[in-house]
Amino acid sequence: MKTDYLWDKQGSDSEIERIETILSEYRYVPVPTPNVAPQKVVSPWRWLLPATAFAALLLTVLWIGSAPKSPVAVSKEVLAELVPAPAVAAVSETPAGTAVETPASARPAKTRLMLIPIRAKVSSSRKRPIKSATVALTDEEKYAYEQVVRALYITGTQLRSVHSAIAGIEDHTTTDKNR
């Protein structure tokens, strides 16, 4: 039976064997399998949620801390304990927002001057919603607020840059500035 070394390597063929030996240096050398383990994908947006949450929390705290106090509803019984009787009568008739000073002659010796924030009828126990959103900030609070806004601006700019780089969009902001 005629063998065909070129087909199935049965038998021998000195010429082909010689070529195989010469070319053996090119033969595939087994290497480790490429690493295909699922890798944790790091999203460029990973800081967005924590940063937003932190900023929102900080702003909320600042707003609450600097918000004007809501009108105090003081019942007549409480007022009666705090202020002598003549003053209570005066308070109930005073227009909203005015300070009530108890007459010196009417108050006891140890009673101190009281400023009662009255914006509505004192007898009214219903709280009114705050209409004005104007916040008076202290210097420290202003500084903190500016820092938060600046941090949000920088984070937003960087996220836009990353997004542009991923999407392959030219950053027109920098281009325009360079012109």
């Binding site: 070129l6 087909w7 199935d8 390597k9 070529i19 195989e20 053996s24 090119y26 033969r27 595939y28």
Partner: peptide, 10 residues
């Protein structure tokens, strides 16, 4: 595939 990688025709 035959001469370098050493595979048979089959």
């Amino acid at each position: 595939l035959r001469l370098i990688e050493g595979m048979t025709g089959e």
